[in-house]
Design a protein around this nucleic acid. Sequence first.
DNA 1: GTTATACGCAAGCTGTCACTTGCCTGTCAA
DNA 2: TTGACAGGCAAGTGACAGCTTGCGTATAAC
Lengths: 100, 100
Amino acid sequence: MLVDADPELFKALGDATRRTILDELTDKDGQTLFEICGRLTMKHGLGSSRQAISQHLAVLEQAGLVRTRREGRYKFHHIDTGPLRSIVERWPPTPGEPNP
Amino acid sequence: MLVDADPELFKALGDATRRTILDELTDKDGQTLFEICGRLTMKHGLGSSRQAISQHLAVLEQAGLVRTRREGRYKFHHIDTGPLRSIVERWPPTPGEPNP
DNA sequence: GTTATACGCAAGCTGTCACTTGCCTGTCAA
DNA sequence: TTGACAGGCAAGTGACAGCTTGCGTATAAC
């Protein structure tokens, strides 16, 4: 009886706002919560509240996709793309597919 | 104003049962609906109904992760891992990470 | 000390999603 | 043709997830 692996990872990637946050951290790594909020509103036009983004970041952190670093009253968020590799490793390329 | 890419792909991967179906198709590709139902019950112990699995397969097909082939009254399901690569390509490896 | 800033916690609301239920269509065998 | 088998469609239900709201805490500026 096998079990499902990394449910939190896929749950984290399941939300569009969280994926946009990862896009934003890819563009500029190490942002604070307010910085992310501002850029999401400006560049992506989604008016999410601070608490909403904070909860999203918590989910991303629990999935291992985001690591945080405290510095005084600031909390910087860094992307970690490592867990993403477990996805392609779980379902290997289909035989017959091109493998560039 | 950028938009989110491949929402259906991530939505499809967001459910544990659908991921188990992909595991099952990885183990044995080209199964029918009833075959998948049986194996999910036997090997994974989840008692999902036929309609539930059918709906899951529809979601997986819409995400491009499963391709179907009709043959008489049978419908065979084949996994397609191609879309998975867009995930790792979207968020490239963080500089400083080991790249085996 | 006072105020502002950056963030955390927890309860409540709402919409979405997975699942069920019931019935229908198409295919093959007897 | 009749029955069994493989699958499809659609409405209804319940639970979870995302979001809001309100208050609380810690750090830094004045």
